[in-house]
Amino acid sequence: MSAAIDILSMILMGAGGVFCVIGAFGVLRMPGFYTRMHAASVIDTLGASLIIVGLLLQSGFTLASGKLLILWLLIFFCSPTASHSLANAAHRRGVTPWQPDQGAKSSSKN
């Protein structure tokens, strides 16, 4: 039983790690500021959630799992707020969205 939970949590955490790498790769690869934000939100949502669920399976029903749940709630409530404030600030400062026909060099106003 516990071996099955171990394997399940290992799979979940591995998948979370993979999504984190994909998100970080997207932040590096995407053109333009706003498109990079989409890649970063993959880390914030799916990557973080999968890793935290895997850790929750590991910790069982203890105080540590309560703290992990609070951490999860913190990510879920605060990361969209931070993303929105960044996007809003960029919009106010006139960062233009990248368009496919503009080529690689764009959104570098500022």
Partner: peptide
């Protein structure tokens, strides 16, 4: 970079 918001985004992540 190139903009400061890209750096802030990377810092957040």
């Amino acid at each position: 970079g190139p903009t400061v918001f890209d750096r802030a985004l990377a810092g957040n992540a």
